[in-house]
Design a protein around this nucleic acid. Sequence first.
DNA 1: CGTGCCGGGGG
DNA 2: CCCCCGGCACG
Length: 464
Amino acid sequence: MSVVSKPRLGKRPPLGGLVCGPCPSPEGLGVPGDLGAEMTAGMGGPTFRQGYQGFGSVKLFAGQRTIAMAMTQHPQVYLSCCGEQCTGVPEPRNHGDSKASVFLPQRGLHTPPKAQDDIWATPTSQPPATPLLRPVSSSINTSEGYRSPEPVDMDEIMAAMVLTSLSYSPAIQSPPMRGPSAAPSEMECSGGEELSDSSSSGYWSWDHGVGSPAPSPSVTEATDATLAPSADEGIDIDMEQDLCTGPVTRKHKNPVRLAYRCLWPSCGKVLTSVVGMKRHIRILHLGHSSESEQSQREEDFYYTEIHRRLASRPPSVPPSAHCASPPNPSMEIRAGTPPPSLLSQSAPDSYCQVQSEQLYQACPPVQVAVSPSSPCWSPPVTVLQSTQSCPFRSRSVSVGEQWAPQHSAPLRPHPISRSPPHTHCASRKVRGEAKKCRKVYGIDHRDQWCTACRWKKACQRFVD
DNA sequence: CGTGCCGGGGG
DNA sequence: CCCCCGGCACG
């Protein structure tokens, strides 16, 4: 009824909060390093929600590190704050260069720089033409904002995401670790993020499913394309931009030489032309040579754009480790998602992401061994409501029976071993295994029974 | 068959 | 509300 899929909601990660927007206003002053935060890129821009577990972590690429490194290398930096230039002292945080913020003595606050462009090493009246740091994400077309009516500076958003990601240091610095308790749905797409091309392309890549048994709530909240899965946020911008401008424009703006790598499992072929790559995928992997629109969209799934200049970095994971199962063209994410051709470079990630989410939502949150044919079978959702022990227990017992059972936990929640009534309806409580007053005291000492037992009600003294 | 306890009824 | 009991399900 009201509670739907409680396990999906899970516990809100304890780490959560707001990271400051583009500019640290007094009321919105973010705390640098606020882990697992929701980062609000202000100015009416999109809100990025970031679960701290689950699909949360981010891989750093070169440019992201430079922001922190540069901040440590310069004793003093300048940054724009609230429209004016401020002097700041770089503050590398605990985890090496993975966390960085700037202390603003003039304002007495710590803040992460909102954008790489907004930090420069020398004072200036205007943001320098060549800022101290250039975002590697320059390939992102920032010409127009898609979500916001106002023109949102996507660089700022990207930079804010960078800074946010810098705060997630543990996940950043450690290789993606996937706990054995990862949800099956996540395992379905295990490796998806590992294949993500960040290591060689410099694109955003979000690790999802960092060994979290419970998916992050942000995933749950992501209901449609507007509330895109958090793991795709970086990609999301790509997609959004592409929706407006198309991938072609972005490629033209990209200064580095592009190549295209086939993402088909155990292929990894790199070609320099899209056409060639598409042909490669179409013929070799998709197994047909027709150039129908359908097939072209499929092809877009299976290659990724890489920057050859950065390609010298060793790829972390061979392409074969991409999706656990080879991409199945029949299992498409067409429904409710942008056309695959718009996913282009980020398609593999979002492919897996969306797929896992769909799988997640498709599967019952908890495997409940209830036979559908059972006369009292109820949907898992309903079963889940009884997580807080059986509701039948909650009925009040007569006053006077205030005996507080201290040696047995009352209303003990059974998160896993919840054995629902298989054959009898919910009206009947499963017989408890604990000895009741009747057995303990014997029928001869009925006066020592708890009142409930005396009245042939559910024992209140020896609660199961 | 013993036990646990739901549902119902009497006072 | 207190108390009791018929009757059912389960082990």
